[in-house]
Computed example of a mutant assay.
Amino acid sequence: MTTLKRTPLFPVYEKYGAKTIDFGGWDLPVQFSGIGQEHEAVRTKAGLFDVSHMGEVEVKGEKAFLYLQQMTTNDLSKLEVGQAQYSVFCYPDGGTVDDLLIYKYADDHYLLVINAGNTDKDFAWMQEHLIDGVQIENISPQTAQLAIQGPLAESILQKLTDTDLSAIGFFRFQRDVQIDGISCLVSRTGYTGEDGFEIYLDHDKAIQLWDRLLEVGQADGLVPCGLGARDTLRFEAKLPLYGQELSQDISPIEAGIGFAVKVDKDVPFIGQEALKAQKENGAPRKLVGIEMIDRGIPRSHYPVFIGDEQIGEVTTGTQSPTLKKNVGLALIKAEHAAVGTELDVEIRGKRLKAVIVPTPFYKRPKQ
Rank of each mutant, 00 (worst) to 15 (best):
D308M: 06
T318Q: 14
R348Y: 11
I311S: 07
I356L: 04
K350A: 13
K333E: 15
G340D: 11
V304S: 06
H301N: 13
R364N: 08
D308A: 11
Y362N: 02
K350N: 05
L323Q: 13
T316C: 12
V345T: 06
D344T: 10
Y302E: 07
K325I: 07
G317K: 02
A354V: 00
D308Y: 08
E342Q: 14
E346K: 11
A338P: 03
H301Y: 14
H301W: 10
T359M: 14
H301L: 12
K350R: 11
L343H: 11
G328T: 05
L352N: 06
A334N: 13
G349C: 07
G328A: 15
L343W: 10
V314E: 01
D344V: 01
P321T: 05
P303W: 00
L323P: 03
E342V: 09
H336N: 13
R299G: 07
T322E: 09
I356C: 08
V345L: 02
K324V: 10
K363F: 03
R348L: 11
P298V: 01
V355E: 14
T315G: 09
K353F: 03
L331C: 14
L331S: 11
A330S: 14
V357P: 03
E342S: 09
K325C: 10
V355T: 13
G307A: 03
T316M: 06
R348G: 04
L329R: 12
A337W: 05
A354L: 01
V355A: 08
T315C: 10
T341W: 03
G296K: 00
T322I: 07
V327P: 03
I332G: 15
E335R: 15
V314W: 09
S300T: 08
Q310S: 15
E346Q: 12
S320K: 01
T315P: 01
R348A: 12
L343P: 11
V357C: 08
G349S: 06
K324T: 05
P360L: 09
A337T: 09
L323E: 11
I356R: 01
P303G: 03
I306D: 01
V345F: 08
Y362A: 03
K353W: 06
T359W: 10
P360A: 14
E342Y: 07
A354D: 00
G312A: 08
P358C: 13
F361V: 00
A330R: 02
G340C: 08
R351T: 01
R351K: 15
T318N: 15
